[in-house]
Computed example of a mutant assay.
Amino acid sequence: MRPISEIAGELGIPSDAVLPYGKYKAKIPLSEIKTNSPRGKLIVVTGITPTPAGEGKTTTTVGLAQGMGRIGKKVAATLREPSLGPIFGIKGGGTGGGISRVEPEDEVNIHFTGDAHAVGSAHNLLAALTDNVAQRRSIEGFSPVNVSLRRVTDVEERSLRNIVTGLGGSGNAPLRETGFDIVTASEVMAILALCSSLDDLRNRLSRIVVGYLDSGEPVTAQDIGAVGSMMSLLRTAIQPNLVQTTEGQPVFVHSGPFGNIAHGCCSVVSDRMALSYADYVLTEAGFGADLGF
């Protein structure tokens, strides 16, 4: 592997804009998205199932980026961040395979730069604040039975899919049925992938529906008063992450919305950043292959 500063430099990103997370990965601020320069061409890679050898969307995307790099094209790839659950399950890691991989794959697959943890923390903070507001009856007509928001975890556990919280007396209230989803299924993850700026992120978070009044009117994260705290957890998670292929082509790995729950594509800001520096950008689409067309 080459130092990430070299990968960023070849792409044209100024050295003082590279925020290293160790030697081989970095975050790039949104301010580095160039809006007054020619945009590259976006190439979407999608598919229903991998080959018997395990060559799927990610492996194909990385392989194409390597091939275009070998023939002298200024190319970059944009991918979703892997989720811990599938990594330790049957599916395995999400960084490609064979010699068409994203590196450092051990770090990309596990924790990476902490974005998924930030999403889970923001989501579960909203859930905790929502339960508190419902229990205290801070919003008229909004009680624990009206809460619809579930919690999230990055490692699926069958026993947590449907649970009862608040056991052990009034000090642990509210008592209600709820459950856990995987972090990639969180609406916060989908919002992180779709937002275009910090202001846009704030506006989208404020509209998350956490439950309903007795009258049927929705209660939002804005009503709960959670948006500012959620923003503090997500302020660096919005910045795309830069890594490389096994042959040194730049790869932006950012956000990880679940394919059959959300749109299944990497973040809008990582695509825009890559398109402002590379002539060709290969992006993997897990579900919404027509997104943006």
Rank of each mutant, 00 (worst) to 15 (best):
Val102Ala: 14
Ala26Leu: 00
Tyr277Cys: 07
Ala116Leu: 15
Ser255Thr: 15
Thr49Tyr: 13
Gly89Val: 02
Ile163Leu: 06
Met1Ile: 10
Tyr24Asp: 13
Pro257Cys: 02
Gly228Val: 03
Arg70Gly: 11
Ser148Asp: 14
Gly22His: 03
Asp115Ile: 09
Thr178Ile: 06
Gln66His: 03
Ser37Asp: 08
Ala190Met: 10
Thr51Val: 10
Glu177Arg: 14
Gln239Ile: 04
Lys27Ile: 03
Ser186Thr: 04
Leu149Cys: 07
Glu157Met: 12
Ala274Gly: 11
Val145Leu: 12
Gly98Phe: 11
Ile261Ala: 03
Val108Ile: 15
Gly47His: 04
Pro250Met: 07
Val188Ile: 09
Gln244Ile: 07
Arg70Leu: 13
Val133Cys: 06
Arg204Cys: 07
Thr236Ile: 11
Thr113Gly: 01
Lys23Ile: 08
Thr51Lys: 10
Leu213Tyr: 07
Asp223Glu: 12
Gly141Val: 03
Ser143Cys: 10
Ala190Lys: 09
Arg137Met: 10
Gly120His: 00
Gly56Thr: 05
Gly9Thr: 13
His263Thr: 07
Ser186Gln: 02
Val253Glu: 02
Gly169Arg: 04
Leu291Tyr: 15
Leu201Pro: 02
Ile4Met: 08
Gly120Asn: 09
Arg80Ser: 07
Val75Met: 09
Thr165Leu: 14
Ala289Thr: 04
Ser138Val: 05
Glu6Pro: 06
Ala76Pro: 01
Arg161Lys: 15
Phe287Glu: 01
Gly256Phe: 09
Gln244Asn: 06
Thr35Gly: 11
Ser276Ile: 09
Ile48Arg: 12
Ile191Phe: 03
Ser100Lys: 00
Gly256Arg: 08
His254Arg: 05
Gly288Leu: 12
Met231Val: 09
Val210Asn: 07
Ser31Tyr: 09
Pro50Gln: 08
Thr220Asn: 06
Val269Leu: 06
Leu192Phe: 03
Thr113His: 10
Gly114Thr: 08
Ser159Lys: 13
Arg161Pro: 01
Asn260Met: 10
Ala274Gln: 02
Asn172Asp: 07
Glu247Tyr: 12
Val164Asp: 08
Arg70Ala: 13
Ala185Cys: 11
Val102Pro: 00
Ile28Pro: 01
Asn109Thr: 11
Val253His: 05
His254Gly: 05
Val183Leu: 01
Val251Glu: 00
Thr60Asp: 10
Pro29Phe: 01
Met189Ser: 04
Ser138Phe: 12
Phe142Ala: 09
Ser232Asp: 14
Glu247Arg: 12
Ala285Phe: 14
Asn241Phe: 11
Ala289Phe: 13
Asp154Arg: 11
Phe293Arg: 13
Glu10Asn: 15
Ser121Asp: 15
Val18Ser: 05
Gln244Ser: 15
Ser197Trp: 05
Asn172Pro: 09
Val164Asn: 10
Leu19Val: 14
Met1Pro: 13
Ser186Asp: 03
Val188Arg: 04
Gln239Phe: 14
Asn172Phe: 14
Gly141Leu: 09
Glu6Thr: 12
